[in-house]
Amino acid sequence: MQQFEESAMPSVTDNAMTLWNWPLAAAQWNKDVIDMMFGAQRVVAARMPTIAAAMQNPLAADHVELSRMVSEKVGAFTTSGKSISAAGDAVQRAGSANARALSKMASGSVLWPSDWMRLAESNLAAAAAMAALPTATLAPLQDGVKANDTRFRK
């Protein structure tokens, strides 16, 4: 599944493949959510003694680990939010293009084949962005959980 970055716009082929592979990606996403939930449970269980020790003696607490708990979550949710924003931008661009085309047709103008192709491409990009959104928003959260789970298992 594609992930959205500000620097790289997916091609028409990439967008078509995203939609083509959506059912498989949705099944993989379900598995990833379950894996992440079990991993998060292990990470929380591993961090509870650190939190309990900090509550008993705040001066002797593991402040590096405690601050890491917050900074990792902020970073993951920020990256996840950027994915949501990128998908929203694609949908907004498609909606604006559709509105311009409708306005043009309402005024009696003709849409040429190139106009229809641009509309199709913008709507394909919006549909692909929405299809890729669950995976793109979950990936940074899942990466953080996997990294912590691996680190705590050592």
Rank of each mutant, 00 (worst) to 15 (best):
F38I: 15
M130V: 13
V64H: 05
A46N: 03
A128L: 03
S109L: 10
Q142P: 10
T78G: 11
A40V: 02
N98I: 15
A136I: 02
S67A: 13
T150S: 07
A125Q: 11
S7V: 08
A136R: 01
R42K: 09
M1D: 06
A52H: 04
S71F: 04
V64T: 14
A8G: 11
G144P: 02
Q56W: 14
L111H: 02
V43Y: 01
T78Y: 12
Q41D: 15
V64C: 09
P134Q: 03
A90V: 05
M105H: 09
M105Q: 10
R100T: 14
Q56M: 11
A132T: 07
E5D: 09
G39M: 02
E6T: 13
K146G: 13
T78C: 15
L24H: 11
D35E: 14
N57Y: 06
S96H: 08
S96K: 08
L133W: 05
S83R: 03
S85Q: 15
A8K: 05
V44R: 02
M117W: 14
K31L: 15
T18R: 01
A60P: 03
S85K: 15
Q41W: 10
N98C: 12
A99E: 08
K146N: 14
D62G: 00
M9V: 08
I34E: 13
P113V: 05
I51T: 01
F4H: 05
L124D: 04
S109A: 10
S83A: 15
A76N: 01
L138G: 00
T50L: 06
